[in-house]
Amino acid sequence: MNLWLIVRPLLSRLVRFFHISLIEARSERSSSRLGILWAPLSTLIFAGLLTGVFHQQPLREAGDFFLFVLSGYVLWNFITATVTTSTTVVQRRYDFAVHNNLTLVGLFFKLLIDRLFAMGLNLILLLGCLVIVKPQTIGLQLLLLPAMLLIMALVSLAIAYLVNVAVIFFPDLDAVFNVAMRLLFFASPVFWSAEAQGTGVRAILATYNPISHYLSVFRQCFGIVPFEPMAWAVTLSLSLILCVAGTATYRLTADFIRNLR
């Protein structure tokens, strides 16, 4: 009963923010006929393009490779949105938030919901493609998806705050983050896999680039790659570190940041 009393207002806020995201997303694309459907459609087109260009026949079947790329690109979109849309949150949106009765935490939470909303549209696309292309891959591992999404949501919240604070103190980092995300796209196994090489640059990137572990566990949820407990262990450890860093940074800087003009 007590737990429900705590959870209920959070759920209510969650639904409220998803409703706001829906209205805003619809209005942003109100001039087009397909409206918000353009979000998953553009993901589909780009993933198809990457599949066509980078598919290597001997390594994977085209269908498998398409699902590999699509799943990677869906998560990549969420990761890149976390960084690139968070560089100027306080500087540009806090005033809007204050006028709409949002706290600093509320603002970051609302923007997280915006990202989750966009990801949700892409997830529907991914599940649809899975059902069409390879329905046998969907299994019990899909039950891991809610846990994965919760981890990603918390990490996204932490990274968004850390990125924003970094840019506030060092404004030049805004451009650095944007360039870094473009580089990371190629340095992460979104449209390439290290499985065939075993050694070399790809293998190093797949091991030491933290994003590759998140991509791996995300794909595991859909049965696109086999279940690897080590990838989950690394992802959980990295997420814990990022969440602790985000919380500590918030505690140290929130008062100063709220008064920054």
Binding site: S27, F96, H99, N100, L102
Partner: peptide, 19 residues
């Protein structure tokens, strides 16, 4: 303040209600 000029009165009103 806190309104979006590119949105209609109805959309802004709905957003204000939710906020």
């Amino acid at each position: 303040s806190g309104l979006r000029s590119e949105l209609s009165g109805r959309q802004n009103a709905a957003l204000k209600c939710l906020y």
